[in-house]
């Protein structure tokens, strides 16, 4: 029933790319990795779209899915650029928050630093070298981890 055709092959590759990048998207914890996975997943979907449609057209080019994919590429690059902008601003806010916390921590007495350490131990269990800054950062980063509020 199915004979090998270029379009069918690339549609299959597209499907494999979708599955592969879904795996990476869900397992990765790094924002940029997730974004790369999103882009590759998009490419997989586009390959499926064009490949599958052109198998129906006896392997001749079908302008409609190609135009749709062109739209899709532009939408994907918009979304990627937007995500990058937000990531950058978020990183900036993190650094500034961490610096502010550091300044405050320098002024505060040791007792409050201990509290911060404890909070850190609760969360990470390790990684004590950078605990004071990391903890404050994470406490602000993830609302759901902020069990006892801001240490200050």
């Amino acid at each position: 029933m199915i004979s090998f055709s270029v379009d069918f092959w690339y549609a299959g590759i597209g499907a494999a790319l979708i599955a592969l990048s879904l795996l990476a998207f869900l397992l990765s914890k790094r924002l940029l990795k997730k974004l790369l996975a999103f882009n590759i997943m998009g490419s997989g979907v586009f390959l499926m779209m064009v490949g599958m449609a052109q198998t129906q057209n006896d392997g001749a080019a079908d302008a409609v899915p190609q135009a749709l994919v062109l739209t899709g590429i532009v939408v994907a690059v918009s979304a990627t650029a937007l995500a990058l902008v937000v990531i950058r601003r978020f990183a900036l806010a993190s650094v500034v928050a961490a610096l502010a916390a550091e300044n405050k921590a320098a002024e505060n007495d040791a007792a409050e630093n201990d509290a911060a350490e404890k909070n850190g131990a609760e969360r990470t269990g390790s990684d004590t070298a950078v605990s004071d800054t990391t903890v404050t950062d994470t406490a602000l980063t993830d609302p759901n981890l902020n069990k006892n509020g801001d240490p200050q």
Binding site: L31, F90, S94, V130
Partner: peptide, 20 residues
């Protein structure tokens, strides 16, 4: 950062991002 203590932001930040 200026303080020289913080690890690179990507290490610090990107590793913490995950769903609740």
């Amino acid at each position: 950062t200026a303080a020289g203590k913080l690890p690179p932001v990507d290490q610090q930040l990107l590793n913490t991002f995950t769903s609740t």
